[in-house]
Design a protein around this nucleic acid. Structure first.
Lengths: 163, 163
DNA sequence: GTCTATGCAAATAGTTTGCACTTTT
DNA sequence: AAAAGTGCAAACTATTTGCATAGAC
């Protein structure tokens, strides 16, 4: 699915709910699908202010983001930074996230075994599964190395004190 | 591990960090381990006010909860209700959660296949896994039935209109 | 013209923090 | 006595909302 196809889908979505296609909504929509990064509401608001086009207020950014999530054009990700992150779904299969607790780097992964086991767990408990949220927290490769270097320095310093 | 054993563990934890065992901390600690439910900071604060004992302020409740999480006496769970829930770890194996989006009911489950697949995913991406967070959202058995009854009523009503 | 959207600033909600005073060690 | 803890109220942060005005249909 390409950019203009999804744009039409957005217009259809608005129409079915008797919502209006405003300049602000179009601008936000386009900007959101122009990035492949995860971004926060505040980040998006920053982009809107920095780039030219019809002005968009913070309130409208928040309201439009909620709308896009409802319409399943965006998904949210809470990386534990106190603010929600968003990512568009264009061309993205379902996936879960790995979050680096040192630098905030986010990697995506998916595993069919996990999906299956989740469905079974829900079934066992009598739940009708609607959606799920899996986040793995740890240190990315670079930050793991950094941590190892620090640990090495600490080890040498304390052996000096001991010895 | 029984109540008094974990209490001693708490005292040891405080000692190693040169923290003091105050009445407030002891009261909060005991109350938290007296429940097997998930609870929020505000709920705990409510319990503290309702029950007799040395007064505990809201700030101290929050500060002590953070301390207990750091010490790994408690774990947090974000059930998407805008407030964090806590649960103690006494006698609980690691588990993940199923959350009912209608009534808020929480069930626990665990599956070794999920744990394994997570470790593998982290490894593939070069991450050192520290912890993870898996929540399945859906409708519990009771709420699923309720939804089905509502759907049935809607179906009948619309067939009347059509016919 | 009607109904929805926007911008602004104020409100919200859960949580955190600065500071003067109290308690534990 | 020294160091840490507490309570209070104010601060904080991300997000939401009320309301008057502007814009899409």
């Amino acid at each position: 699915m390409n950019q203009s196809a999804i744009q039409r889908q957005f217009e259809r979505f608005l129409k079915t709910r008797a919502l209006k296609l405003t300049h602000q909504r179009r601008r936000i929509f386009e900007r959101v699908f122009a990035t492949h990064e995860h971004f926060s509401a505040e980040t998006l608001y920053g982009w809107m202010r920095a780039e030219t086009g019809s002005a968009v207020s913070r309130a409208t950014v928040y309201r439009t983001l909620s709308l896009l999530v409802e319409g399943e054009f965006l998904e949210t990700l809470d990386a534990g930074k106190g603010e929600l992150l968003y990512e568009h779904v264009l061309g993205h299969r379902h996936h879960d996230h790995l979050v680096c607790i040192d630098c905030g780097k986010i990697e995506e992964f998916s595993d069919e075994r996990i999906e299956t086991a989740q469905r079974e767990a829900a079934l066992r408990k009598g739940f009708t599964l609607q959606y799920h949220n899996l986040r793995l927290f740890g240190n990315c490769a670079a930050c793991t190395k950094k941590r190892e270097r620090v640990a090495e320095i600490v080890r040498r310093a304390s052996s000096k004190v001991d010895g």
